[in-house]
Every structure is written in structure tokens, then in C-alpha cells.
Simulated scan of single mutants.
Amino acid sequence: MNTILITGCSSGYGLATALHFHTKGWNVFAGMRQPDALSDGVIPTSERFQPVALDVTDPASIASALQRCGAIDVLVNNAGIGLFGAFEATPMSTVREVFETNTLGTMAMCQAVLPQFRHRRSGSIINVTSSAVLAPMPLVAAYTASKTAVEGFTASLALELAEFGIHARLVQPGYAPTTRFAVNGSERMQGLVPEAYAGYARRVFAMLTQVEHVTAEAEVADAVWQAATDVNGPMRRPAGADAMALARSGAS
């Protein structure tokens, strides 16, 4: 029976992906910063589904989580934080916070699992980025930069890991209004749209509410499933109708 560790499972894509793999019969370790904060009934009562305390910015937390998980077959780096606002008004401390989780957290998790994968000469790493890497979007410059860095990192990493039978893949979700992207980052985003940018930001928000095609959590979960089970498939998998349209248009 295969075992998977997924980061960022408290809600959204991570939780949907964890539940999807559980229904497929996998052992699932669902990493999240505060497992005790989940409401009853959100996760299945099953020996094959284990919430794990995991903060990808904390080396001790990573080591503890991996010790609990033991041998895993697949790592999914989904943990991330969002950011929306004018870059001019964004403190560099906030930019660093975004990179610490989205980029360095992903890299730290990869580095932590590689010894066991290399020893077994098998394993898959799936890094979740964003359709923001497929086409530029305004007012998410720092966030886009953090995800674009993961794309370059993964493309290079895949080449060196192929020598050991290890696969590295990317899943690129589109815009999903049903996730907690904005809610989770609301405090961080306070004051990032100053008056000079207010009118422009309103137009951007209005544009987002009129988007015809969006992404559902289940579509991302399925894309991760395909990336994990089809080792001969493409390295990059757009997830959601909007992301797939961007990929087809060659907007990147």
C-alpha cells in the first residue's frame, strides 16, 4: 500500500488532495500547522488517514513529522500562503515571509525526504504552484515570484533526481474562489492597497468576479493524483479549466 505525505492540508487543495488519495486506498499523512484546530467530521476516522503537525518553515517540525511518517512514496508540497496587493506597499519582511513558506519551505521538504528516496531509488515529489506562472496577473508580484522560483527549482531538480529513479513534477492550479486563499492572508494583506492603487485594485477584483472558468479543489486533487500515478506523464500539469486554457494559449 502506497503512502503519501501532503503539506498544507488544513483546507483547500491540500485537504481535498488528502481525502482523494484516502478514497483511492492510500495511507495518507496530512500535514498542517494545527491539526487540533480541525472541526470534527472534516477528516475521516481511519488508520489510513493521519493528521500530522507540520510547519514547513521549521526544521525541527519537518524532522519530527518525517519521523512519524516513516517511509513514504510520494511527497506533495502544497503548503503556501497568499498575498494580494501593490508591490510598492508590500514590506520586504512580508515578501520574505511568503518566500519562506512558498519557496524555501518547499525546498526544505524536498531536501528532507531525498535521502530515503535516493536510498530506495524510488519516490515522487509533486510541487504545487499556481496558474500565475502561466500568465502574469497584477497585484500578486511577490506571490508569483515565489511560485515561479519553485517552477525553476523543480525543473532543475527533476534532472538530477532522474539518476536515482526519483520523479519531480509540478501541478499548476488555476483561480479557485472557494479556497481560503484570501481569508488566510487577510491580516498579512492589510494596508497593501494604498489609495493610489485603490481604483485599479477594484477593477482587478471586478475582473476576477466575472471570470467564466475557475478551478475546483477536486480538479487539483485529481491533477496531483495523475502526477503521482503516471510516472511517464508530463512534468507540468495545469489544474482547472482556466489554468488549462492559459497553458494551451502558450501565455507563459
Score class of each variant (00 low, 15 high):
6 I>S: 11
198 A>H: 10
210 Q>F: 08
202 R>P: 00
60 A>H: 11
15 L>W: 12
42 V>N: 05
239 A>D: 03
16 A>C: 07
113 V>T: 01
45 T>R: 12
105 G>V: 13
11 S>L: 03
31 G>E: 04
242 D>L: 08
189 M>T: 09
56 V>E: 01
199 G>L: 01
108 A>T: 00
9 C>I: 09
120 R>A: 15
11 S>Y: 07
168 A>K: 05
54 L>F: 02
29 F>D: 12
199 G>V: 01
11 S>W: 04
29 F>M: 09
144 T>G: 10
251 A>N: 12
74 V>S: 09
118 R>A: 12
196 A>L: 10
137 M>T: 08
158 A>V: 11
182 A>V: 09
117 F>W: 08
177 P>H: 07
184 N>C: 07
18 A>S: 10
120 R>H: 05
42 V>P: 02
250 G>H: 09
131 S>A: 13
208 L>K: 10
10 S>E: 00
149 A>V: 01
20 H>N: 11
23 T>H: 13
37 A>W: 04
145 A>D: 06
248 R>E: 12
59 P>A: 07
12 G>S: 01
131 S>C: 08
192 L>S: 03
108 A>C: 01
65 A>H: 04
97 E>Y: 03
162 A>L: 12
214 V>L: 12
118 R>Y: 07
180 R>P: 01
215 T>E: 13
83 L>D: 04
161 L>E: 15
46 S>Y: 01
229 T>V: 15
167 H>V: 14
64 S>T: 12
139 L>F: 15
163 E>V: 14
57 T>S: 07
94 T>C: 08
131 S>I: 05
142 A>E: 06
30 A>P: 09
53 A>H: 15
111 Q>G: 12
112 A>D: 05
236 R>E: 00
224 V>H: 07
33 R>Y: 06
121 R>A: 14
224 V>F: 03
98 V>Q: 01
72 I>N: 00
96 R>V: 06
83 L>Q: 09
153 F>I: 12
41 G>P: 07
11 S>H: 10
120 R>Q: 13
175 Y>T: 13
178 T>Y: 07
3 T>A: 15
58 D>S: 05
181 F>K: 06
132 A>I: 06
60 A>M: 10
139 L>A: 07
60 A>C: 06
125 I>L: 10
151 E>D: 13
160 E>R: 11
158 A>I: 10
150 V>E: 10
87 F>H: 06
132 A>S: 10
120 R>W: 03
141 A>N: 02
65 A>N: 02
90 T>N: 03
20 H>Q: 11
243 A>K: 00
49 F>Y: 15
75 L>I: 00
126 I>F: 02
216 A>K: 15
228 A>L: 06
139 L>V: 04
8 G>V: 01
184 N>V: 06
159 L>V: 15
16 A>E: 14
